[in-house]
Design a protein around this nucleic acid. Sequence first.
DNA 1: AAATTAGATATACAATATGTATAGTCAATT
DNA 2: AATTGACTATACATATTGTATATCTAATTT
Lengths: 202, 202
Amino acid sequence: MKKRGYVSSVRSAAAAENRDRVIEAAAKLLREDASIARFSLDTVAKAAGVTRLTVYNQFGSRRGLLEAVFDGIARQGGLHEIADAMAMPDPLMALDRVVEIFCSFWARDAAIGRLHEAMATDPEFAEALLERNERRRKLVRMLTERVAAKTAARRAREGAVDMIFALTSYPMFAMLNRGRPTNEVCHLVQTACRAAVEPLSR
Amino acid sequence: MKKRGYVSSVRSAAAAENRDRVIEAAAKLLREDASIARFSLDTVAKAAGVTRLTVYNQFGSRRGLLEAVFDGIARQGGLHEIADAMAMPDPLMALDRVVEIFCSFWARDAAIGRLHEAMATDPEFAEALLERNERRRKLVRMLTERVAAKTAARRAREGAVDMIFALTSYPMFAMLNRGRPTNEVCHLVQTACRAAVEPLSR
DNA sequence: AAATTAGATATACAATATGTATAGTCAATT
DNA sequence: AATTGACTATACATATTGTATATCTAATTT
């Protein structure tokens, strides 16, 4: 009755391929639908050509699948350019660049909007996504500290950080994006962010 | 077999009382829960001491109940003070006051947050709530036009309108409200709104 | 007083979803 | 040849929205 076990490159490769197909199918469905309402594991499984049970084997739950979809988008989402932006000498230009990067990210895949909707019905998934956003808050805090004069009050700094964090969030992008191209949204957010840090610099 | 029909003040009063009890129970549950996830008509009905079918008789659907809850909150929500604010001679002070009114409104009842979550799973409810928000956009547009110089470009005006509309939205309030008292949120939003219209005035 | 009516109830049913449980299939590996 | 990993087939439990039908009760009309 002992399990000998084995690791098969052929099998794990096939499984990974299957996994990717499911993620891709889920992302496509999220992208095409205008709302998360119609999204179900059954539909995803059929679109991916597997059984619903396979989805559970791979992702554990609906939540697991959604997280995998988000991480898949994030991986190929251009967020790696943040390092270069943060290395820029002028903190205000760095801020502009970071805003631009996140605007592009939010605009990249319409599935991101559906995933944010999913936060409403699944608190644990919401927490998972919020954790991933905390990295952005750290970036914003670093930039704010670089801009702020030493005389600036702590409360004012925290206010600026949270304001910029909110301005660069997906909900903000989504609200500004209706009937407006991404680069214009980006410009609006950049201006608002600069206005938020300006009082700290003097 | 003819319906004679009759209108009874006693009956309709009793029905209205029942209706109010259901709305109140729903609002209370939405207020107490941290997420819309656990909200169900069965729970509401039991909390109100009626049958689930009674809820359907009164509101037609889950969506109908949610709309009734929102309208109930809006009715006693201090939004009537907007008229006085809009009548203020200085448009910037009027803007400050309008921001203050909406901050108070969003902060008034935690159920509002849950209702906004419900927009994710019910597109038609989302549309109903968005329609109610369009009134706010009109206010913002009026104030922006009052501030803007005649030389200000149309696109810049529209940008300012949408930015302020987003800044005064519930999602924005919710993002800034974590660990911060309402009046500080209000101040942050006021400052950001003033910064958004400032470029138009010169 | 008797018939009717509005509102609520009781009960059942249909349709979806998520999630769990068990046994079986098939090819890769030992 | 036996075992194992991934997937499948089928069934089941649970929760939720929404609909259908018959019944109950108190208010109202004739």
